[in-house]
């Protein structure tokens, strides 16, 4: 992590969630970036090297699991910390997310307070 405030990259296409997390994270002095599809998300991970990627599963184009797989297969970014945030709360998806190397998994609807606690736990 750099000396600057931690950078969070949100890969999510739901405008409400983007606005809400942008507000909350900025308020808590995180730097915030977002991309609304998987392809742009992977590019942003390579360019910005975020401290944490918050990744939705249901994305236009390639889905979140595929984004995670590509991150883990790329030597340059494979150690990026990823937290999955999705409305798919099926047990299989949860297992799949962890098996593919997600550090946290939260399902929507989520509690904002709990989200922040989990995010900070990954950072620490």
């Amino acid at each position: 992590m750099s000396g600057k405030n931690p950078l969070i990259l949100l890969i999510e296409d739901n405008p409400s969630v983007i606005r809400l997390l942008e507000f909350k994270l900025s308020k808590e002095n995180f730097r915030f970036e977002h991309r609304d599809n998987g392809h742009d998300g992977i590019e942003a991970v390579k360019q910005l090297r975020p401290d944490i990627v918050v990744l939705d599963v249901m994305l236009p184009g390639i889905d979140g699991f595929e984004v995670l797989r590509q991150i883990r297969q790329d030597e340059q970014i494979k150690d990026t910390r990823v937290m999955m945030l999705t409305s798919k709360n099926m047990e299989d998806d949860l297992e799949r997310g962890f098996a593919m190397g997600a550090m946290e998994y939260m399902s929507k609807p989520f509690k904002l307070g709990e989200f922040m606690i989990r995010l900070k736990r990954i950072l620490n």
Partner: peptide, 15 residues
């Protein structure tokens, strides 16, 4: 609409 849009995604105190 705005309230419902956000309520759909969050739980707890904010909801």
């Amino acid at each position: 609409d705005l309230c419902l849009e956000i309520m759909y995604n969050i739980a707890g105190a904010e909801k």
